[in-house]
Amino acid sequence: MAHSFARPRKSVTLTILMAGLVVYSLFPLWWLLMSATKPQELLSGSFGLLPAGEFALFANISEVLTHQDGIFVRWFGNTVVYVLAGAGGATLFAALGGYGLAKYRFRGRNAVFATVLGAVAVPGAALAVPTFLMFSELGLTNTMWSVILPTMVSPFGLYLMWVFASEAIPTELLEAARVDGAGEWRTFFTISLRLLAPGIVTVALFVIVATWNNYFLPLIMLSDKNLFPLAIGLASWNADATGVGATPVFHLVITGAVLTILPIVAVFLLLQRYWQSGLSAGGVKG
């Protein structure tokens, strides 16, 4: 704990003020949860913040999982693939690269720094259209790679890992390992990796969220429904409710949204301890 002096008195005013903010943050989610318990026809007719009609949550969930031959399950699987390969790759490359930049001096290091730092300021979405144009020339669009490859690059992750590695790994420790005759990569895996863990978890979580929620990139790249991640899949169900010959499935969109949010929130809560220490120790301190 950073400050351990006399515990300040609790403030009711402040608590009420913050409670307002908490309500603002949570009531849309409450609305979502309540809506997920309603059948399609009651969604618009009933008051949003209270349950109405029969309790249809489980019926809705089973319909989500079976609608259009269970494509939701497939989207879920795709999302997991994109997260494991894309976010996993991004985290790995950022950890290696950040470590390399922090702990070694080599020719061209400054150039790498400058390029990567410049890249942090380039909006990812501004890059998405050019990337799409290039990928379409290469015949990569509408493949899983078209989503995975761009996801694997996280200049900000690299930056974060660099800051973290500079702080968390004493250079003396590496020197000691070298004296013992350990190779650079072996040192990395046996000593540095463990010290980098909180930073890695932090970067991983932010890249995972970004990937889990990514909309623009897969929207551009993918046309085959079977390759969609959850975010695009839900949007396409939402679009099904609009148009000629529309089949409104808002109850599925809503229940599907709940099912999409749950895993990511769970991951966050479970790993809370790690990413918070990672954030405070390295990420934003500088």
Binding site: L133, N142, L222, N238, A239, T242, A246
Partner: peptide, 19 residues
């Protein structure tokens, strides 16, 4: 009248063009 859903998922431009 509109030809179809306004928020449709757009399709990719090309499958494979010359490199």
């Amino acid at each position: 009248l509109k030809e179809e859903a306004p928020m449709s998922i757009k399709r990719n431009l090309t499958r494979s063009r010359r490199v």
